[in-house]
Design a protein around this nucleic acid. Sequence first.
DNA 1: ATAATTTATGAAACGCGTTTCAAAGCAAGA
DNA 2: TCTTGCTTTGAAACGCGTTTCATAAATTAT
Lengths: 320, 320
Amino acid sequence: MANIKDVAKMAGVSVTTVSRVLNDYPYVSAEKAEAVRKAMEECNYQRNINAVHLSKGKTFLVGVVVPFSNHPYFGLLIDGIANAALTHNYKLVLIQTNYEEEKEIEALTMLKNKQIDALIICSRICDWKAIKDFTQYGPIVLCEDAREKEVSCTFVDHYKSFSIALDYLHKKGHSRIGYCIGRKSGTNSKQRHSAYVNFLKENSLSFHSDFIFSGCFNFEDGVKVVTEFVQMKERPTALLVTSDQVAAGILTCCKEQGIFIPEDLAIMGFDNQPISKVMHITTLEIPLVEVGRKLFHQAMDGERVTHEEIPVKLIERETV
Amino acid sequence: MANIKDVAKMAGVSVTTVSRVLNDYPYVSAEKAEAVRKAMEECNYQRNINAVHLSKGKTFLVGVVVPFSNHPYFGLLIDGIANAALTHNYKLVLIQTNYEEEKEIEALTMLKNKQIDALIICSRICDWKAIKDFTQYGPIVLCEDAREKEVSCTFVDHYKSFSIALDYLHKKGHSRIGYCIGRKSGTNSKQRHSAYVNFLKENSLSFHSDFIFSGCFNFEDGVKVVTEFVQMKERPTALLVTSDQVAAGILTCCKEQGIFIPEDLAIMGFDNQPISKVMHITTLEIPLVEVGRKLFHQAMDGERVTHEEIPVKLIERETV
DNA sequence: ATAATTTATGAAACGCGTTTCAAAGCAAGA
DNA sequence: TCTTGCTTTGAAACGCGTTTCATAAATTAT
């Protein structure tokens, strides 16, 4: 395969001139530019992108860390990131971690390596300390409340939004409220939990540890929740479900079991995924595609550290 | 930042020796190896991966072309690819095309550029001709029946599987069968359609163009189908739905409309996604994660062109 | 007409790790 | 003792495009 030298020779110019043509720099005469273009065509020249990357110290790749890629939450997020990347001629390197810390470190190392220009971490298991060490190597942006930290982030104030949801349920007459969550650790989960605990305290409600269902990620996890629910002696009357998928699963399962929604159990979803509309699930809208887009822009604007809060919106439908 | 030269100088050896240590080559004395390791640590040396890529002509990146990443079908496929990639120390470059041909060409160009070592195309809109021109630049593998073509593929024989499903419905007494599909063009869709047409012919059944519902990708698309369905004068009694998501949407919507499944309408899904189990949808299992894994392995084994057919399995549940 | 710019062009250095090739040292076998 | 065959080690070439710097030519300004 021909390289820039060959093209230069063929066109009777220097490699510098070829490079100038290649990159649309000025100060090349029309004739020489033409000669170069002709030579490139003749030998089917293709620029070796790795040489460009080495030379420029830039790859036009952005790493995206997600635990799973087949989950609608991350799917939508990736969608937003991917579409923003598309318009900026960046490509995404998908790093699926399955929540293994090792994989997250690998992603961070890619940044250190200069294999990617920036890194977007959609969800993590690793310590902030681990990340901090890598901030010097390039922009890292988080999808969580990192206002206290020296990296950019786009986030939902989950404390606030959980409080809103809890108050809403409380106003509707519920005092036995539980919630379903993916994993218990994680910045977002912790914020939610403290909102929950504070809500109980402020309203003098008692804490039931079995009102908290963890491990809820997908539609099918709704089955587990309902199975547990029916076996409970003291049941909650309302459930905050941090994913519409899970809420939909719970709904479906409850119908089978003859549990009426919202009479027997009120359900409040999160995200406002399309499925929640179809199933008339009351939910808290989080514009994930927009979050994704913002994350990408922050990754691009690596110099500036910004913290963007995304407002959520309560969407009333028929499950509360 | 220190480079290999600096390390060599610090350790009092040549760059070659450093390179040998870096790559675990034999023929380095223990003392020198130790000196190199110490030097690397001292200056926090990090190998510039782009230089490696340039030198090796290899990037350990595999491109994955998908139209959307937030769809469970592609989610599962990506999952399989990603996990296989993980174990082989490859990373994925996600190219979300939204079915724009231009983006597909861009992905192919990345292969030509040597920016990726191989390309997996999960679904495409572009012509085979367009792809053919790029096969010379590296392994391209397709997720469709490409037995006639000189690229590797992992595929489901959609003609066969559609026939199986149609026969099953027919044996259950249905003669007014329709189907729901994502897009009408596309290799898979065409295979399915011809299976459908042949089935009708062989059983002397008449063709109703309105029994075919296209644009069915997601859960929410089920709504459209049901809306159309209830307005039909002559309704099908069974529907083959090429995605469990859509089948689930149809099911949910039918329940609302008082349409009984399977009495009023039999539904047969595809993929055997978790949702189909929860909702007891009879479906045709396609092991997408395994398909993904195979696609990756074929991409790795670029030399050999193989065509792997994936068998499907009918899973009887309660919607037929 | 002369100075000051602007335009055009190429040599060479740079980014950096890998690999080939030659050479030297040393041990085992003949 | 001599040959053969590892084991070690490093110089130099290689992969290839970008960028800096110097030079020369052509304009424009004074």
